[in-house]
Structure formats: structure tokens, C-alpha cells
Design a protein around this nucleic acid. Structure first.
Lengths: 137, 137
DNA sequence: CTCTGTGCAAAGCGTTTGCAAACGA
DNA sequence: TCGTTTGCAAACGCTTTGCACAGAG
């Protein structure tokens, strides 16, 4: 995964801030804006939160990033080249990736609606094994 | 669909504001907080936005409502008794319901992760037929 | 050299909260 | 009557914006 090439393809300049953001997202999979900022700040203290927001907007715009919106959770971002679904635990808020093929359903939807679909944002909601074990009331 | 019974079951009082909110959501399927407020205000001018928010939170809490979070869209709410997926048009922002069975995938996810899943928030993203016809560049 | 990106502070917007009065059961 | 709900205004937190300067190409 060469971020510099992706950026140049989209006419976005390669800046240290931008690279740090991409590296951070790559490292974490799905991450909130705030966590990106806090993590980068450790070895790049001068970065500003506005810069993180502006970059995320720019990267989202050109489809390098994808948003994940799960009910009752902060917005998260991930690299969009890697398609997968998510499960969220409604007790502890954990979010995990799952590798499941949705192309069948996507095609079915496409046929039913006439839409040209190119992405899916799916989050299954439930209780994770740990919380189920702990908190069974 | 008798809202009064649902409310009483959850120990929520039946108030005119609450009923108006439920009726509005029922009428629209999926709707934003702001639209609920604006629509109710027409024949109930004294209602406050805070009341709408408080009620939505209360109704969400007891699972009468479900949130829909689609990328790049305002949060919407719908009645949760009616399970279905959504397709969103990224050009015009339209959101439509689709009646598709996801229980297979849900079970698959459940097996893979050990989660006990009880809901899915899935939004497929693409371009609707109208926008595709208009805007093909 | 030019245009994009950065950092700061202020503004914006959707949402939440505290409180006193009104209301449902 | 008692606990819940309402409406108002203020507070809040996340996100965006304007602007001058710095940096990439």
C-alpha cells in the first residue's frame, strides 16, 4: 500500500501531516478523528485538529477513506480499499471487522431499486462474547 | 400499530408531543430530527426542539426507534419494528427502504465472531436511477 | 514561483442539560 | 398527589471556516 502514489493520483500533495494520518488509520483499521489527532500528536506535537479534519475531508472526497457510522457511536474512518463489514457491541462499544461477502445482497438490491451500488456500510449490532459472559442479568 | 400500548409497556407516559412524534415518524418512514420538529410545529407550534430530542432519546432507549446512520447524511430515525435495509444515493441524498433478508449473513457473522446479534444497520451507497440518467459525465 | 496545505482562533451547528412550571396517571 | 415531561435558555462538543504563513511541486 503506497500512500504517496494514491495521493499523487488524486492530485493531493504529499505532506508529513497527511502521511501521518494515513499511517495512523492504516495501523488502527477503524479510528475516530480524535484518536487520530491524539496519536499523531505524540510524535508530531505541532499538528492541529483542524488539519486532521481538513485532511480527512479531502481523503474522503477522493475515496481514499470511508466513513463508518454505527448507531450510538462516534464516527470512524478506515481505508476504503479494504471492503468488509462490522459488528459493534452495544455494551462496551467495541467495533470489529468481519470478512463477509455481500455482493449477492448488493446485486439483489441493485436489481430491486435500479441503483448503481458501489459501496456498503453495514454494521451489525449485538453483544460481544465478553460482555455476554460478564453482564448476563 | 398502537403507539399508546407500546408506550405504556415501556412505562412512558402518553403525551400529545410524544404521540405527534411517533405519528410523524410513522408517516415518513425515516426522518431527521429537524424534519420531525418542523413538521410537528405546523399544527403544534408550541413544541420545542429540546422536547423532540428528549423524546427521541427516550424512544430510542426503549427500542421503539432505531437510528439510521448513512455516510455523509444526517442521522435519521425510524420505527424499529420494521426491519429492512437502505440504499442511499450519494448524488441527491435520497434514502430508500429495501426489503431484503439478511438473516443468513447475520448468522454467518454471529458464528464468526461469537456475538449475539439482534439488529443490523446496513446502508448501501450508490447512485439512484434518476441521478444516473441526469448526471452522466 | 504558484498553488495547496497548515495552524490558529473564531464561528457554526446539531445536540444536551438544568431548571421551574405543567401535566399525565 | 407524585413522578414524568415540557419548554426555555444556556452550555456543550464536534466540525468547519477565514486568514496569514509555510511548504510542496
Amino acid at each position: 500500500m503506497d500512500f504517496e502514489i494514491s495521493l499523487k493520483e488524486k492530485n493531493l500533495k504529499v505532506t508529513p501531516q497527511r502521511m501521518a494520518i494515513l499511517r495512523e488509520i492504516h495501523k488502527n483499521g477503524h479510528i475516530t478523528v480524535d484518536d487520530i489527532y491524539e496519536n499523531i500528536r505524540i510524535d508530531y506535537p505541532s499538528i492541529s485538529l483542524a488539519t486532521v479534519y481538513k485532511n480527512i475531508a479531502a481523503l474522503y472526497e477522493v475515496n481514499i477513506l470511508r466513513e463508518i457510522k454505527a448507531p450510538a457511536q462516534k464516527q470512524r474512518y478506515e481505508l476504503s480499499y479494504d471492503h468488509h463489514l462490522h459488528v459493534a457491541c452495544e455494551r462496551c462499544g467495541k467495533l470489529e471487522d468481519i470478512r463477509v461477502d455481500v455482493s449477492d445482497i448488493s446485486q439483489q438490491c441493485s436489481k430491486m431499486t435500479g441503483y448503481i451500488l458501489h459501496d456498503a456500510s453495514a454494521v451489525f449490532i449485538g453483544v460481544c462474547p465478553e460482555c455476554a459472559a460478564k453482564n448476563k442479568k
